[in-house]
Each structure stands twice: as structure tokens, then as C-alpha cells.
């Protein structure tokens, strides 16, 4: 699942670094993910994993790292 998350980040995150080199726990905002780009990442994750983020999950913490995103996706029942 981490690889698919990284794929989405690489395609939609507009980050100035190589996403493949980012560790699971690294802070994505510090790595250059802007709030505008994070919205595109959220939309792309919803398509990729066929889920919908509920309102209460739409906060900074949910998307702060690859492992935080994986955790959120698991909670929503997304499968690999």
C-alpha cells in the first residue's frame, strides 16, 4: 500500500524531492507538500483506493506522513 501512496504523492504532491527517497514517517509538509497540493493528493487517494475521506479526517495530521496516510486508509477499509 505504501508504494501506491508514494505513487499518488509523486504524481500529485508537486514535491521538490524524490518521493521514493522519503521515509514512511518523514513529515511531508516539511518535505514541501503545500496545502493546495495536499488537496490534489486527497482527491487522487480517494480515486486510487475507492474511498471517501469523512470531514473529521480532513485535518493536517491525517496526511502528515506516508504511514499516517496508510493508517487513515486502513481505517476507511481500503485494501492493497
Amino acid at each position: 500500500m505504501e508504494e501506491r501512496i508514494r505513487g499518488v504523492l509523486a504524481q500529485h504532491g508537486r514535491m521538490p524531492v524524490d518521493v521514493a527517497g522519503i521515509s514512511d514517517r518523514a513529515d511531508l509538509y516539511q518535505a514541501g507538500l503545500t496545502s493546495h497540493a495536499s488537496v490534489n493528493v486527497m482527491l487522487a487517494l480517494e480515486d486510487e483506493f475507492e474511498i471517501e475521506f469523512p470531514q473529521e479526517m480532513l485535518k493536517k495530521k491525517t496526511f502528515e506522513s506516508v504511514s499516517a496516510i496508510r493508517q487513515a486508509l486502513s481505517e476507511l477499509g481500503a485494501t492493497v
Partner: peptide
């Protein structure tokens, strides 16, 4: 920016 190497939003 946090450091001279940091991206603009950090």
C-alpha cells in the same frame, strides 16, 4: 524557511 535548504512552505 526553516533552513536555506528547506522548501518554501517549510
Amino acid at each position: 524557511r526553516r533552513t536555506p535548504e528547506s522548501p518554501p512552505n517549510d
